[in-house]
Simulated assay, not measured.
Amino acid sequence: MSRAMNLAATEEAVLAACKSKAIRISSLEPLLSGGSHLVCLTSEGADVARGLFKGIIIEGPVRRVAFHRSDTTRYR
């Protein structure tokens, strides 16, 4: 299964929730359509995140920011 998911939450909220459950983040970026695009570092972390964010996962296509570069050092 994919390590990536789109969430109806701010980057700050996603980051805080992931930190509380020790989910390691590979990438986190804002969505143009609102919300955040999360990529977990491991598939196990993604499984935990899908359970954690079960009610706010965005299904279907979303608009992402072109050429967005995450500062991955803030996730470690």
Rank of each mutant, 00 (worst) to 15 (best):
I57S: 15
S20M: 07
D47H: 03
A46I: 14
H37C: 11
V39C: 09
L52W: 03
E11S: 14
C18L: 00
E44K: 11
E29Y: 10
S36H: 04
S20W: 04
G45P: 06
E11V: 13
S33C: 03
K21N: 11
L28R: 02
L52R: 12
E12D: 14
D47W: 12
E29N: 09
G35Q: 02
K19F: 08
C40E: 01
I57C: 06
L52N: 13
S20P: 08
V14D: 02
R50D: 14
E44T: 12
E11W: 07
L38S: 03
I57R: 15
K19H: 08
A13M: 10
V39K: 06
I56E: 14
L28Q: 00
R50G: 07
A13P: 11
S33Q: 05
L52K: 05
I25Q: 01
S26G: 08
G34E: 03
A16V: 05
G35N: 04
C18I: 03
L41G: 13
G34D: 00
E59S: 14
L38E: 01
E12G: 06
T42Y: 00
I25C: 00
S36I: 00
I56T: 04
V48R: 15
G51L: 02
S26I: 07
R24M: 07
L41I: 03
G45I: 01
G55S: 12
S26W: 12
E59Q: 11
V14N: 00
E11C: 15
V39I: 02
E12N: 11
A22S: 12
A49C: 03
E29F: 07
L52G: 08
E29C: 07
E59K: 13
I23S: 01
C40S: 10
E29S: 14
C18T: 12
V14Y: 05
